[in-house]
């Protein structure tokens, strides 16, 4: 299988001596939907900035579909589409002009650029807004405009830096569907997001970066299997008078008729429900306290922080 993105021993030291990347190595395979996660300031945007030529690296190698950024920059850039975190289009330009102009930078003639712009603006629900100035669009529309702009030259690798930040749930889900569709059509996608539910739903492989180092690089499935405890919230029909205690489970009260229970993966839920039924407690509903990936993410980042401090 072809490697879509290959990063080897990538380092970045900013002018103020801050070491943002401490020699990271990472491979993303063609066709993958890859999550690059990390807390704020971990080095995600620096990594993607170097890959997209917006940040100069200090050392290391980056290849996009085998094209070395140092020696075959133009070919590497042809393969790459970038949706940045911040809005970075000219707000005074018309929506259609922004997309057509971007196509022009890739050498696509105006007629063909206009046809492609129409295709992607229609797919992203922006065709009706094509003659509006970009500043008149809502936040969600601006995000979709940046996706249309990044796709107009039909890149093989699409980098999305928090594409759904500030987007409402309905729109976020429609964007997920769209991204899943283009990934299924063959576009490799690298995604950073703070919505871990998003990464869990969309991505097959994941890397977690913290303090400039990769602390996890594995498949989503393998990572989630590492989760040995899940926390559930149980709503009871009646108020409880005494907090129940069950060996192997940690049970905490949230209020008079709600319990928070840490459930070890080795023990499961059956034993808990059986126990609660024996105690005369009827459970009316149940939900995860946090997204599974979120629990893992927090524990991994905490662990890394403790190791760094030690």
């Amino acid at each position: 299988m072809t490697t879509a993105l290959s990063i080897q021993d990538l380092r970045k030291v900013y002018g103020n001596s801050f070491e943002a990347l401490k020699g990271i190595t990472l491979d993303v395979q063609q066709g993958d939907f890859f999550a690059l996660l990390g807390p704020n300031g971990a080095g995600k945007s620096t990594t993607l900035g170097i890959v997209s030529s917006l940040v100069n690296k200090t050392s290391g190698k980056v290849k996009v579909f085998g094209y070395d950024l140092d020696t075959q920059l133009a070919q590497a850039k042809q393969c790459l589409g970038v949706v940045p975190q911040e809005f970075n289009f000219n707000p005074f330009e018309k929506v259609l002009d922004i997309v057509v102009t971007q196509a022009g930078y890739y050498g696509i003639p105006r007629k063909q650029a206009t046809e492609r712009a129409e295709t992607y603006l229609r797919k992203l629900g922006l065709w009706d807004k094509r003659n509006e100035r970009a500043r008149m669009l809502s936040g969600g529309m601006k995000r979709r405009l940046m996706i249309a702009r990044a796709l107009v030259h039909e890149p093989k690798l699409l980098i999305l830096d928090e594409p759904t930040a500030g987007v409402d749930i309905e729109l976020r889900r429609s964007m997920w569907d769209f991204l899943t569709e283009i990934n299924a059509a063959g576009t490799t996608i690298i995604l950073t997001t703070h919505y871990l539910e998003e990464a869990e739903s969309l991505c097959r492989n994941i890397a977690i970066i913290d303090h400039g180092s990769i602390i996890q690089d594995t498949s989503m499935k393998a990572l989630l299997q590492k989760l040995d405890t899940e926390t559930f919230i149980l709503d009871l029909k009646d108020d409880f008078t005494e907090l129940p205690e069950l060996n192997g489970y940690v049970i905490r009260p949230r209020d008079a008729h709600t319990l928070e229970v840490d459930v070890p993966k080795s023990q499961g839920l059956n034993e808990l429900f059986k126990f609660l039924a024996e105690q005369g407690m009827e459970v009316t509903s149940m939900r995860n306290k946090a997204n599974r990936l979120e629990e893992l993410f927090v524990s991994l980042v905490d662990k890394n922080l403790k190791q760094e401090r030690a």
Binding site: P84, N90, R149
Partner: peptide, 16 residues
């Protein structure tokens, strides 16, 4: 203005 609004990035990510 292109730098200030960061739309210089449109050019910098492209192969121009």
């Amino acid at each position: 203005g292109t730098k200030f609004q960061r739309n210089i990035e449109e050019l910098l990510v492209s192969p121009v």
